[in-house]
């Protein structure tokens, strides 16, 4: 059951340290259920650390994280994944020695692939079907990204955390991705996406959070940010005209 607009994921004053480095300095972030929240910010702002902290791949040293009303701050990554959180890391995390089919079979925790979901994946990413029995390591960068996203949606998820899915991809592939993410949103899944490409962020996002130096410095609707050139320049150091 989805309660559109109610927070699905909430971070409250989350701090993360990696070795001697203090990366997150009290992140407050709310991801409403049923939409796409874009996490923007310059390189090194702490976006990827935030995603990894939610997934428990790095531990929050202070603050709390709740998912669907449940405190997951001290849970481990497998538990969080089994609560219905799909994760697409920046590095894609493809198992290159396994075939495309094996990558997807492994991503299906239930142990079997749902033909209907497979159909959706094949429609969105025809390359997945074409290279089904090929080793994932032989795929191109764009195809690996498609496989990484396909893995995250091979079973129903409540939340998808996607870290820079368009990094290094050709414009034609990015245009295809926008369509895929819109279709995904239409299925009711909640998306938290880290993205540097503002055109894509504007096309998909409902809400936006901007990070700087390990803190959320702006939180609001995407439409509001897209309409305010001055705000964009102040927060992101960019103007919409450069991304039309």
């Amino acid at each position: 059951m989805t309660d559109k607009g109610a927070p699905l994921l909430a971070l409250d004053k989350v701090e993360t340290r990696i070795g001697p480095y203090h990366i997150l300095h009290g992140v407050d972030l709310v991801v409403p259920e049923g939409g796409a929240t874009m996490l923007l910010g310059r390189n090194g702002a702490g976006k990827t650390t935030t995603a990894r902290t939610v997934m428990a791949l790095w531990r929050a040293s202070a603050g709390s994280i709740t998912f669907g009303g449940r405190d997951i701050t001290r849970e481990d990554a497998p538990t969080i994944a089994r609560l219905g959180v799909g994760y697409v890391p920046e590095s894609m995390g493809i198992f290159s020695d396994l075939t495309v089919a094996e990558n997807l079979r492994l991503a299906a925790i239930s142990g079997h692939l749902d033909p209907k979901r497979l159909d959706v994946i094949f429609s969105a990413f025809p390359a997945i079907k074409r290279f089904w029995l090929g080793r994932a390591g032989t795929l191109s960068g764009g195809q690996k990204q498609m496989l990484s996203i396909a893995r995250a949606i091979v079973e129903p998820r409540r939340l998808l955390i996607i870290d820079e899915p368009t990094k290094g991809l050709a414009p034609a592939i990015i245009a295809n991705m926008i369509g895929v993410f819109r279709d995904l949103k239409a299925t009711g899944v909640t998306i938290l996406m880290i993205e540097q490409n503002f055109a894509l962020a504007r096309a998909i996002g409902d809400t936006v959070a901007v990070m700087e130096d390990g803190r959320i410095v702006h939180h609001g609707s995407m439409a509001e940010l897209a309409d305010d050139d001055a705000l964009q320049r102040r927060l992101l150091g960019l103007s919409m005209s450069a991304h039309q």
Binding site: M55, L57, D76, A77, P78, A81, R82, Y87, P89, G93, F95, S96, D97, L98, E102, R105, L106, A107, I109, G111, R151
Partner: peptide, 21 residues
């Protein structure tokens, strides 16, 4: 499936955990 998990875990243990294993 166990074999798949072993081969995948050897390559990227963290990703396998993030997938629920």
């Amino acid at each position: 499936r166990i074999g798949l998990m072993i081969r995948a875990g050897v390559e990227n243990r963290e990703m396998l955990e993030a997938m629920g294993y």
